[in-house]
Nucleic acid binder design. Structure first.
Lengths: 231, 231
DNA sequence: TCATTGGTATGACGGCCGTCATGTTGCCCA
DNA sequence: TGGGCAACATGACGGCCGTCATACCAATGA
């Protein structure tokens, strides 16, 4: 359940990749590995942010519950991404929840040990700052995107982004290896499951975009471009 | 147009308040003051983020344009708040724009000088990290709020927040000393100016909330509580 | 004095989309 | 084989709210 990571594994994590081997060895001393099943909660909104977490393998959705009880997905993280960086520094409660989308392995460092590491290497602090900055820019973008545009437009933009980030030519189109339920698509775009189903069903019929067990296949990217541009 | 700040002025800025007097003196050496008229642009989305800025007096709206051309206000900053912190560290372009809401005085530190300061005092780095963290949590909250709730609910939540943050008992209710146009209210809540006007007009008639030259007066807080709780 | 500009106000119309209800399909397990 | 469950699907209905059009008011200035 809780074992030390080796160097090979640490190098997979963005924040630690550029450290000196000696420094990575010190990280390895205080880090622990933990495994999660699909659907497990890594932390919940409001929990004490007293641990730094990074994803080694698997995928995790970070979401926040709206006052109305719906949940909205802020981001989906994968291997190499840090998780608890937002809260660990100021010892704030986590502002959102994290749940695994598939079997996932995480690396954890307790707050006190993490602080000691920060003191020993300015590169770590720089990495943290960079990470926060990027995340802030990303959230800013999502905020602007969620507001105003029609739901179909948001769907089109979501899939275009997935295409560009992780898509690869395959199966007669562009394959996006990211299985997501209709509910998760709805949470990503800030709508309801019914509306998500309607849009996906129509695109399925029109052969714009097919849903498969292990992801999606975009068959007509121009159609998505057009939908994304609309109003 | 561009003069050195004194220590009294530096102590007004959150990030510098807790520094040692000697350190603040070094900050004073490299900082410059600049004045802006109401409506002036401090920086625009996409500009090079090569300067750290903090507000000395006045109010500034930070907003991002949606793909559709509308603008959505991310936050309104006042005296003491930092402005360019997001971008200066990684030398990224600003993810949003900043425009003054009233005559405003800003303190500016060029990137290179700012980096030298960061190297000299870990307290500055800690302050930066804390600031970014808080801002991230705030943005996260706004994202969840914008999604799903009705516009009137968002308006109610906005004014409740303003009440709690800067309201004071006065004029037969709670006075919020923050003049905002209908358009700015719309940009804060992610709606259109017409809808903003309709809601504000109704609340004005029902004596829930009055608009005045220098802000707003909340007369029936329970009515706002009720509207904020709705679905 | 009149034109111009910017902010505020109000009505009509219509479509998107949230809500509710019902049905189907696939899968696991006894 | 059948029951139960989760995910997917589809239709009906209605209201919120975005869009367009018009009007009012105050401040400014030639």
């Amino acid at each position: 359940m809780s074992l030390q990571p080796d160097d090979e594994l640490l190098r997979r994590i963005v924040l630690f990749r550029r450290l000196s081997p000696g420094m990575r060895a010190r990280v390895a001393e205080v880090a622990h590995l933990r495994s999660y099943e699909r659907g497990d909660t890594i932390f919940s909104e409001g929990d004490a942010g007293d641990v730094f977490i990074a994803i080694v393998t698997g995928r995790v959705k970070v979401f926040k519950s709206t006052p109305a009880g719906k949940e909205i997905i802020l981001e989906i993280f994968g291997a190499g991404d840090p998780l608890g960086a937002v809260a660990v520094y100021d010892n704030l409660p986590f502002p959102a929840s994290a749940v695994t989308l598939e079997p996932t392995q995480c690396l954890r460092i307790e707050q006190a040990a993490f602080f000691r590491l920060l003191e020993q290497d300015p590169a770590l602090v720089r990495g943290l700052l960079s990470g926060l900055t990027l995340r802030l820019a990303e959230l800013t973008r999502r905020l602007a995107e969620l507001s105003g545009a029609r739901v179909e437009t948001r769907f089109a933009r979501l899939f275009l982004k997935l295409c560009d980030q992780i898509g690869r030519p395959e199966r007669g189109g562009v394959f996006v290896p990211m299985p997501l339920s209709r509910q998760e698509l709805a949470d990503l775009t800030g709508t309801t499951i019914e509306t998500a189903i309607r849009i996906m069903s129509r695109w399925q019929k029109e052969d714009v975009l097919h849903t498969e067990k292990d992801g999606f296949v975009v068959l007509q990217r121009p159609a998505l471009d057009e939908a994304a541009a609309a109003s």
